[in-house]
Amino acid sequence: MKRSILTVSLICATMSASAAEVAPTNVKFTDGAIAESLTGVAGDPVAGREVLGSRSLGNCVACHQVTDLSDVPFHGEIGPMLDGAGSRWSEAELRGIVANAKMMFPESLMPSFYRTDGYTRPGNAFTGEAADSTFGPLLTAQQVEDVVAYLATLKE
Protein backbone atom coordinates (compact mmCIF):
# COMPACT_ATOMS: atom_id res chain seq x y z
CA MET A 1 0.00 0.00 0.00
CA LYS A 2 2.61 2.44 1.16
CA ARG A 3 4.89 1.32 -1.63
CA SER A 4 2.33 2.01 -4.34
CA ILE A 5 1.88 5.57 -3.08
CA LEU A 6 5.62 6.03 -3.20
CA THR A 7 5.77 4.69 -6.73
CA VAL A 8 3.07 7.10 -7.82
CA SER A 9 4.86 10.06 -6.30
CA LEU A 10 8.14 8.98 -7.88
CA ILE A 11 6.49 8.72 -11.26
CA CYS A 12 5.07 12.21 -10.77
CA ALA A 13 8.51 13.58 -9.88
CA THR A 14 9.99 11.97 -12.98
CA MET A 15 7.18 13.29 -15.17
CA SER A 16 7.63 16.80 -13.92
CA ALA A 17 11.41 16.65 -14.46
CA SER A 18 11.01 15.59 -18.05
CA ALA A 19 8.34 13.61 -19.82
CA ALA A 20 11.00 11.63 -21.68
CA GLU A 21 13.29 10.77 -18.73
CA VAL A 22 14.15 7.08 -18.41
CA ALA A 23 13.90 5.77 -14.82
CA PRO A 24 16.95 3.90 -13.41
CA THR A 25 14.95 0.66 -13.43
CA ASN A 26 13.94 1.08 -17.09
CA VAL A 27 17.31 1.57 -18.73
CA LYS A 28 17.87 -0.65 -21.80
CA PHE A 29 21.42 -1.92 -22.34
CA THR A 30 22.76 -3.44 -25.56
CA ASP A 31 26.26 -4.93 -25.20
CA GLY A 32 26.84 -2.68 -22.20
CA ALA A 33 25.82 0.46 -24.10
CA ILE A 34 22.70 2.66 -23.87
CA ALA A 35 21.67 3.88 -27.29
CA GLU A 36 19.06 6.46 -26.31
CA SER A 37 19.63 9.60 -24.26
CA LEU A 38 18.22 9.20 -20.72
CA THR A 39 16.55 12.62 -20.91
CA GLY A 40 16.27 13.72 -24.53
CA VAL A 41 18.09 16.89 -23.49
CA ALA A 42 21.63 17.33 -24.85
CA GLY A 43 24.32 16.96 -22.19
CA ASP A 44 26.32 19.98 -21.05
CA PRO A 45 30.07 19.17 -21.05
CA VAL A 46 30.87 22.02 -18.66
CA ALA A 47 28.44 20.67 -16.06
CA GLY A 48 29.79 17.17 -16.74
CA ARG A 49 33.36 18.29 -16.05
CA GLU A 50 32.15 19.60 -12.67
CA VAL A 51 30.53 16.22 -11.87
CA LEU A 52 33.78 14.33 -12.56
CA GLY A 53 35.87 16.51 -10.28
CA SER A 54 33.49 17.18 -7.42
CA ARG A 55 33.72 15.02 -4.31
CA SER A 56 29.99 15.39 -3.67
CA LEU A 57 28.93 14.57 -7.24
CA GLY A 58 30.62 11.90 -9.36
CA ASN A 59 34.01 12.03 -7.62
CA CYS A 60 35.32 10.14 -10.65
CA VAL A 61 38.84 11.43 -10.05
CA ALA A 62 38.89 9.40 -6.82
CA CYS A 63 39.68 6.49 -9.13
CA HIS A 64 40.64 8.00 -12.51
CA GLN A 65 43.27 10.43 -13.73
CA VAL A 66 42.19 13.06 -16.25
CA THR A 67 44.78 15.49 -17.61
CA ASP A 68 42.11 18.08 -18.45
CA LEU A 69 41.08 18.13 -14.76
CA SER A 70 44.57 18.88 -13.45
CA ASP A 71 43.18 21.93 -11.63
CA VAL A 72 41.40 19.46 -9.32
CA PRO A 73 43.87 18.02 -6.75
CA PHE A 74 44.44 14.30 -6.11
CA HIS A 75 43.49 11.89 -8.86
CA GLY A 76 43.29 8.20 -8.01
CA GLU A 77 44.89 5.19 -9.69
CA ILE A 78 42.14 2.59 -9.37
CA GLY A 79 40.69 2.84 -12.89
CA PRO A 80 42.28 3.64 -16.27
CA MET A 81 43.32 7.14 -17.25
CA LEU A 82 40.33 8.78 -18.96
CA ASP A 83 42.33 10.82 -21.49
CA GLY A 84 41.12 9.70 -24.90
CA ALA A 85 37.99 7.97 -23.54
CA GLY A 86 35.95 9.90 -26.13
CA SER A 87 37.99 8.29 -28.91
CA ARG A 88 37.92 4.80 -27.45
CA TRP A 89 34.18 4.66 -26.83
CA SER A 90 31.03 5.81 -28.59
CA GLU A 91 28.55 8.06 -26.81
CA ALA A 92 26.20 5.09 -26.28
CA GLU A 93 29.02 3.06 -24.75
CA LEU A 94 30.07 5.90 -22.48
CA ARG A 95 26.46 6.28 -21.33
CA GLY A 96 26.34 2.57 -20.51
CA ILE A 97 29.67 2.66 -18.65
CA VAL A 98 28.63 5.62 -16.51
CA ALA A 99 25.12 4.34 -15.80
CA ASN A 100 26.21 0.80 -14.93
CA ALA A 101 29.81 -0.13 -15.73
CA LYS A 102 29.16 -3.73 -14.69
CA MET A 103 27.20 -4.26 -17.92
CA MET A 104 30.35 -3.53 -19.97
CA PHE A 105 32.94 -4.84 -17.49
CA PRO A 106 31.55 -7.65 -15.35
CA GLU A 107 32.65 -7.41 -11.68
CA SER A 108 34.02 -3.92 -12.32
CA LEU A 109 35.13 -1.89 -9.32
CA MET A 110 33.42 1.11 -10.83
CA PRO A 111 30.17 2.07 -9.05
CA SER A 112 26.91 2.19 -11.03
CA PHE A 113 25.90 5.82 -11.21
CA TYR A 114 22.37 5.33 -12.53
CA ARG A 115 20.96 2.29 -10.78
CA THR A 116 18.79 1.90 -7.68
CA ASP A 117 18.35 -1.81 -7.05
CA GLY A 118 20.40 -4.88 -6.14
CA TYR A 119 22.61 -3.39 -3.43
CA THR A 120 23.85 -5.08 -0.22
CA ARG A 121 23.02 -2.89 2.81
CA PRO A 122 22.55 0.34 0.88
CA GLY A 123 23.08 3.37 3.10
CA ASN A 124 21.78 6.89 3.40
CA ALA A 125 24.69 8.62 1.65
CA PHE A 126 27.77 8.58 3.96
CA THR A 127 25.90 8.59 7.28
CA GLY A 128 26.37 4.87 7.93
CA GLU A 129 22.59 4.64 8.45
CA ALA A 130 20.29 2.51 6.31
CA ALA A 131 18.89 3.99 3.12
CA ASP A 132 15.49 5.61 3.52
CA SER A 133 12.79 6.77 1.11
CA THR A 134 15.12 9.47 -0.26
CA PHE A 135 17.38 6.77 -1.77
CA GLY A 136 18.08 7.50 -5.44
CA PRO A 137 20.75 6.95 -8.09
CA LEU A 138 24.22 8.45 -7.50
CA LEU A 139 23.69 10.85 -10.41
CA THR A 140 20.51 12.20 -11.98
CA ALA A 141 19.67 11.27 -15.56
CA GLN A 142 20.74 14.71 -16.74
CA GLN A 143 24.02 14.53 -14.83
CA VAL A 144 24.76 11.24 -16.62
CA GLU A 145 24.10 12.97 -19.95
CA ASP A 146 26.38 15.85 -18.90
CA VAL A 147 29.18 13.43 -17.94
CA VAL A 148 28.81 11.58 -21.26
CA ALA A 149 28.99 14.89 -23.14
CA TYR A 150 32.18 15.78 -21.27
CA LEU A 151 33.81 12.35 -21.75
CA ALA A 152 33.08 12.64 -25.49
CA THR A 153 35.35 15.72 -25.56
CA LEU A 154 38.31 13.71 -24.21
CA LYS A 155 39.79 12.86 -27.62
CA GLU A 156 43.13 11.15 -28.22
Partner: peptide, 12 residues
Protein backbone atom coordinates in the same frame (compact mmCIF):
# COMPACT_ATOMS: atom_id res chain seq x y z
CA UNK B 1 35.84 -1.10 9.88
CA UNK B 2 32.80 1.05 10.62
CA UNK B 3 34.28 3.99 8.72
CA UNK B 4 35.43 1.92 5.75
CA UNK B 5 31.99 0.33 5.31
CA UNK B 6 30.26 3.70 5.79
CA UNK B 7 32.46 5.09 3.01
CA UNK B 8 30.92 2.63 0.56
CA UNK B 9 27.59 4.40 1.16
CA UNK B 10 26.39 1.40 3.15
CA UNK B 11 24.45 0.84 6.33
CA UNK B 12 27.45 -0.01 8.47
Amino acid sequence: FKGCIRDTRAET
